[in-house]
């Protein structure tokens, strides 16, 4: 994976590597509601970053801004030194891929077809070559099928290759979403609650899978509510609360941070002040 020489490393980045993703002041307003308010995020190559926060903190909205699903009201997102246009297909082409909080597979397509759709933006065959089926088209199609099969076996889904996506067990559907996201050869993978609905054994296997994904050279940003899972997985944690970045740091630092505990439990001293300032 090539990391293009980009802007100087910003604060909060793991030492020694340059950020491939730089989000600066990302703000998303829906009418009077500010869902995400000036959030900065840097992700270094090969880093696993956890994005945590209570419900309604704006985590998924932030993901949607990163992937172009929502054009942010303000702020900029730079990936590998290039500013991203707020269009989902451009973001996918640039190398950011994602999964969804509530599974959004193509339910009536087979598992293999789902992954092959993920390969879409890395192939270029147009209408005429699809009709003509020249050697180049066939090579590209073979390559896409091959990659899709490899990814299915990477996520241990090969037995489901020709099964309809909807018929897969829940945990496998989540894994299939990851396989589909990996098919576009991304540099950064955004996982939105990948462990939701998984049993402890599946969660453990998922952690291994994410480590293996990192070994392929990818950076990963994970939203998750399963704290045990996230603290054992991530190099760095970013805590969002009410649309703002509360703090970030190594898992042990964040765990010890009183403000984080306060946000989740809402009982610690200082909460009232925080709330008052938010209300303004």
């Amino acid at each position: 994976m090539s990391i293009q020489p980009a802007n100087p490393p910003a604060s909060g980045t793991a030492p020694g590597s340059e950020p491939i993703l730089q989000a600066r002041g990302v703000t998303m307003r829906f009418g009077g509601l500010t869902a995400v308010d000036g959030v900065d995020l840097d992700v270094a190559g090969g880093e696993i970053v956890g994005l945590i926060g209570p419900n309604g903190a704006g985590k998924t909205t932030f993901f949607n801004c990163l992937t172009g699903l929502y054009p942010p009201t303000a702020g900029s997102i730079t990936f590998r030194g290039q500013r991203l246009a707020p269009k989902p297909y451009r973001v996918a082409e640039a190398g950011i891929s994602r999964t969804f909080q509530n599974i959004r597979l193509f339910p009536n397509m087979t598992a293999l077809e789902n992954v092959m759709v993920g390969r879409h933006c890395r192939t270029r065959e147009g209408l005429l070559s699809a009709i003509g089926r020249g050697p180049r088209y066939r090579a590209a199609e073979r390559e896409a099928r091959q990659t899709a099969r490899e990814l299915l076996s990477f996520l241990d889904l090969d037995r489901h290759a020709s099964a309809i996506a909807r018929s897969l067990p829940y945990g496998d559907q989540r894994k299939l979403e990851i396989a589909r996201a990996l098919a576009s050869d991304p540099g950064l993978l955004l996982l939105d609650e990948p462990a939701a609905g998984m049993n402890p054994r599946e969660t453990l296997a998922l952690r291994e899978t994410i480590f293996k994904i990192r070994q392929r050279g990818l950076s990963v940003v994970v939203i998750e509510h399963d704290m045990r899972f996230i603290f054992n997985l991530c190099d760095r944690l970013v805590v969002l609360a009410r649309g703002r970045k509360l703090t970030e740091g190594r898992p042990d630092e964040v765990r010890a941070d009183e403000r984080v505990i306060a946000t989740y439990l809402g009982t610690a001293p200082g909460t009232a002040e925080q709330e008052a300032s938010d209300a303004r």
Binding site: A92, F100, N108, M109, H120, G126, A130, E141
Partner: peptide, 30 residues
Amino acid sequence: FIFARVDDSRIGRAWAAIREDETAAEAMGV
């Protein structure tokens, strides 16, 4: 001939994906 070939191609898969879930399809680069 055109129908069959286009349906069973990258374009046909993209159409099926758009039909099933346009948002997800766009997020996958379609």
